[in-house]
Structure formats: C-alpha cells, structure tokens
C-alpha cells in the first residue's frame, strides 16, 4: 500500500516541534483521515478538533502545507505526497496543544455585537413577508460555519495582533448579515467604525480566498459595510470614496 509522511506539529504553549509520522494512504482519503489513523495507531494523545467530517461544522481548521484549510475537506490526492505534508495549528490564536488552538476570543467578540432586532411582524400570526431576492445576500453570509480560517489568515490579526481593536472578517460578515437582514432595525454603524475597527481592513481579500464556504467576504460584506460607514460619518468624502471604489452590486 502507498505510504505518505505527515509532519505534524506537537506541543503546547511552552514549545514543541514538528514530528514525522508515516501512514498508509487509500483512495479518497482526506487529511483528517490521516490524522485519525495516526491518532489511532501511533499517537493516541494527538490533539485535534473535529465533528462532522463533511465540511459542515467548522471544527477541523488547521494549516496544511502552510495554507489555512479544513482538514476534513482537503483530499490527499490534491497534495504533493512525495514530500511530507505539514499540518500545524492556526497561528492567529493562542495554542492549546498540538492542532488545537484557543478560539474563545471569537466567541467573546460575537457577544459584543448588537443582536438582531426585528421590526414588528407583518401578519397577525407573528410572521413576516420577505422576498427571496431580498435575502439571497444574507443567506450567503449565513452559510458561515465559524471555522475561523478567515480570522487566521487576516494579517490584521495574524501579524498585527489587533484582536482588541478589530473584530476580523468573520464578524464583519456577521455584522453584514445583520445589517442587510430585511427585518432588522438595529443600527451598528457607530460600533462598526470604532469598536469593530472596520477601517483596519485594507481589502487584501486573503479571507475570501480561504473561506471554505466560498463567501465573498470582502466584496459582498466588508466593502458595503465600509461604504455605509463612510456614508454615515464622512459625508464630504463620500464622492471621492465612490470614485475610488465603484459600487459593484
């Protein structure tokens, strides 16, 4: 049977190193299968998160050959197996152990964002009317599985550690989903500009590239939010901004 080598980061906050494991490779295997195989046969205590094994829960985020991806959706036949496949934890969050990081910051950030506040119901049974066309965009944002890969890749968090000042692409998508929800009546623009730090994003689009749900994070969520903030707070600049960034939708 074919074999491949996986170079997996082992260690905790105090330090660690890459360790090589060889394991059998079968047709159709994904990186998470290899990790499980190694865990079952060679390293019972290898720590990793997973749940659904089908790209639905966003638990198994890691960096595979340096790229932030879901382990359960990365096929081995899409990787060069002649050399070791490196698997390491996400870098934008503190390490717990091996492939597991402390992502609790994300949960704390979400709590700070003002919750959904609907207009009064349209019908006596407490329901509303919304056209499918008006919710397509919001549904795109709500596909998010909270894998936090976009947070991991964003340089504002990863390299500049602005966790205190910037909520990151995942939560800009979250705010966008609320702001563009046809029923929502809340106003989040002041926070967006200040506490959420939308201005830190300089539209590198790295987040969009890694999103396993193919959410067009930058173009569909962040840029429109930036425009709303500009409209609200920098009226005199509005025309210049529009000139620089023509509306695409």
């Amino acid at each position: 049977m074919k074999q491949a080598t996986f170079s997996i980061w082992r260690g905790d906050a105090a330090g660690g190193k890459f360790q090589d494991y060889e394991t059998d490779v079968e047709e159709g295997m994904v990186v998470l299968d290899a990790v499980h195989q190694i865990q079952a046969t060679q390293a019972n205590d290898l720590a990793c998160r997973w749940n659904c094994k089908a790209g639905k829960c966003g638990s198994c985020s890691a960096e595979i050959n340096g790229i932030p991806r879901l382990m359960c959706m990365t096929r081995l036949n899409a990787l060069p197996l002649e050399k070791p496949v490196t698997i390491e934890p996400m870098k934008a969050f503190p390490l717990v152990r091996d492939l597991v990081t402390d992502v609790s910051w994300n949960f704390a950030v979400k709590k700070r964002i003002k919750k959904f506040k609907p207009r009064p119901p349209d019908a006596p049974d407490g329901s509303w009317r919304m056209a499918q066309d008006d919710i397509d965009r919001v549904q795109e944002f709500r596909k998010c599985i909270e894998c936090f890969l976009c947070q991991d890749v964003c340089h504002v968090l990863r390299d500049h550690h602005k966790h205190e000042e910037f909520i990151g692409p995942r939560f800009l998508v979250y705010v966008a989903a609320l702001e563009m929800h046809p029923l929502d009546t809340e106003d989040r623009l002041a926070e967006l500009k200040e506490a959420h730090g939308v201005g830190f994003c300089n539209i590198t689009k790295c987040c969009t590239t890694v999103c396993p749900e193919n959410i067009t994070i930058t173009d569909n969520a962040i840029i429109p939010l930036k425009e709303r903030v500009v409209d609200e707070f920098y009226d005199p600049l509005k025309s210049l901004w529009k000139f620089l960034r023509p509306k695409k939708y």
Partner: peptide
Amino acid sequence: VHGHREYNPGW
C-alpha cells in the same frame, strides 16, 4: 492510555 490529561482524545 498514555500521555497527559490535557486534550487527550485517547483518554
């Protein structure tokens, strides 16, 4: 099982 109690899937 072997190893530590921290995040140990074997345990």
